[in-house]
Amino acid sequence: MAWKDELGRRGEVVAAQWFEARGFTVVDRNWRCRSGEVDLILRRDATTVFAEVKTRTSVAFGHPFEAITAEKAARLRRLAAEWCREHGPVPGAIRIDAVAVVDAWSANPQVEHLAGVA
């Protein structure tokens, strides 16, 4: 596995732990279909969250959220709809969130969360 892939996986682990500490349950990780991949699918109360995780070692070359373009947000909406079709009716609300993880390998990685980005 390439270093960049390892960094991304580490960021996803950090993000999943962050969500779990806030009462979310991880429903699925790295769900893939022909159209792409959703990093994390989570549930809390009556809300299903499709989370895009962006991980960087630092913000020296830009904030992780800068990688979530309008095109990426549209693809996340399509992927969420496809996951819902595949897994049957999803009760309650659906939301697409973004999570930025910086310095994922440290003892105290920085995690930022934006709810409802798409």
Rank of each mutant, 00 (worst) to 15 (best):
E12N: 09
G36L: 09
P91Y: 04
V26S: 13
V27E: 15
F65P: 00
R10Y: 09
R44C: 04
G11H: 01
V111F: 03
E112H: 12
L79T: 01
A118R: 03
Q17M: 14
V13A: 14
W18R: 01
V13M: 14
W31F: 10
R34V: 04
K72E: 11
V101E: 02
E6H: 13
T47A: 12
E52I: 01
A2V: 14
G62V: 00
C84I: 03
S58A: 04
E112R: 13
A2P: 15
R95C: 03
A16K: 09
L40Y: 03
I68W: 01
C84T: 10
D103F: 06
T57S: 12
A98M: 02
R29S: 15
V101M: 04
A107Y: 03
N30S: 15
G23N: 06
V38E: 01
A51I: 06
E20C: 13
V14C: 11
I94H: 05
W31C: 05
R56F: 02
R78M: 02
A60E: 10
A107C: 07
P89G: 13
A81F: 00
A51T: 09
G88S: 07
F65N: 02
R10D: 10
A60S: 13
E20A: 13
P109R: 09
D39N: 12
A15Y: 05
I41P: 03
A74G: 02
A115N: 08
P109L: 08
V26A: 14
F19H: 13
D28A: 14
V27G: 10
E66N: 13
K54S: 05
K54T: 06
R9Y: 11
P91C: 04
R9I: 11
R34W: 08
A51Q: 07
L114V: 11
